[in-house]
Design a protein around this nucleic acid. Structure first.
Lengths: 159, 159
DNA sequence: TGTTATATGATAATGATTATCATAATTGAA
DNA sequence: TTCAATTATGATAATCATTATCATATAACA
């Protein structure tokens, strides 16, 4: 138990340091708001600014929406987050701390998001780019469909 | 020359019929505005509602913006157009009349768009979806980079 | 501890797209 | 062709997510 606790503390301390260090590099300040937002952000995998705002508000902490947006975008600049434009109109912020590059599989029903990587597809993409005389800088691959649960839920059409 | 003319006329007539027939199926009306918008739309490959609005305005024809948006979305319902959300905030409407499914390669500099298809990638996508228990409904694959012209223009750094 | 640069938050602004609604045009029947 | 019924148009207001503004507050560092 104490082991767990210390591990958690360590982790948190590490995050704080990360933030502090990264901010310092850019002459930016470490504020209470930024700590709160980072902390909350890292508890999620893919979250919208609005949802994060409400999530934090539920903890009785009020932060201005502008601060949420600004900080989320800041985290993206620091390489901790990444914007994702899936089907909806809202941007989702992907927590990419300690994650490598990946693409997404999205359930159109329950909105579940699964991350995957496919070196094979990447190779083919590179080949296509080259064939067309392009220098590939980035790509976006999203697979939309229905996950097992949702398929089952809708079609118990057995017997 | 007369051959060319008649060919053009034939083509236009075909488009009109297409529109008329498709509209009739849905109890919708064939209007002058819809003809104008379809005609202009088909001259482009990927165009935003705003650009189409201006393009039509340049011909001294004034249509309300709402009509442009409504009609463009209508064309999508009819399977003549398809919305594309690339990097920018504006939606581009892809003219997919007589086109099969394809993905896009986009130059981040000059905005050139190249269409391509890759059955190999599609197969891999299907495999990934299956592995994760998903029934794949659609996908979105966009490759962003720099086209030959833009690469050349910026880096004559030879010698 | 004070000075200075940066951050915050309330709110206005933005920009693309859609909704509203009075008026106009098309369709199909007679 | 004409009329009634239905659908379309267009000016403009509304929407919605996000960003800009700016007065006030706070962090950093000498």
């Amino acid at each position: 138990m104490s082991v767990t606790t210390s591990k958690v503390k360590e982790k948190i301390k590490t995050k704080e340091n990360l933030l502090k260090v990264e901010l310092a590099k850019k002459h930016l300040k470490l504020t209470r708001q930024r700590e709160i937002i980072l902390e909350a952000f890292l508890k999620n995998d893919h979250i919208s600014a609005e949802d994060l705002y409400h999530q934090i508000a539920r903890e009785k902490i009020h932060l201005g929406v502008a601060t949420i947006y600004r900080t989320l975008n800041l985290l993206c600049e620091l390489g901790i987050g990444q914007q994702r434009h899936f089907g909806d109109q809202q941007v989702l912020y992907d927590n990419i701390l300690n994650k490598k590059h990946h693409d997404h599989l999205i359930c159109q029903k329950c909105k579940k998001i699964v991350e995957f990587e496919s070196p094979d597809i990447e190779k083919l993409q590179e080949k296509i780019a080259k064939k067309n005389g392009f220098v590939l800088k980035k790509h976006r691959l999203e697979l939309y469909g229905e996950c097992q649960n949702c398929v089952r839920a809708k079609k118990p059409e057995v017997f």
